[in-house]
Amino acid sequence: MEISKIAKILDANIIVSNHDSKHKVKYGFASDLMSDVLTLEEEEVILITGLCNIQTIRTAEMANISVILYVRNKQVTDEMIHLAKENDMTIMQCNYSMFRTVGLLHENGLCPVY
């Protein structure tokens, strides 16, 4: 699913853009537990989380995840933006709940990891 489509479905803001808007992700993984994210073997994943701190960026870096979506109107800090830019990541943010976010993305064709 293209980043631009995700933004449109969720009325999301793109806070940091390091990909073409047509860049695609294949899988969605929603978690506030970073150790769970670190178990993933799949690539082309968008991390959907309500945990908004520097460790979500670090975790994505280690897990080769380059697109992160923060839900529940969480506000990304300057430190997070700096680290995301350094790692060529795209950061998105939406006001919807985690449940509504993943429901809409799945309904529109984004695949679960498992």
Partner: peptide, 16 residues
């Protein structure tokens, strides 16, 4: 736990 860790998965993740 606030940082997104502390669920008892660290050492098993390392081992894997």
């Amino acid at each position: 736990r606030e940082m997104g860790f502390g669920a008892g998965m660290g050492l098993p993740n390392i081992k894997n």
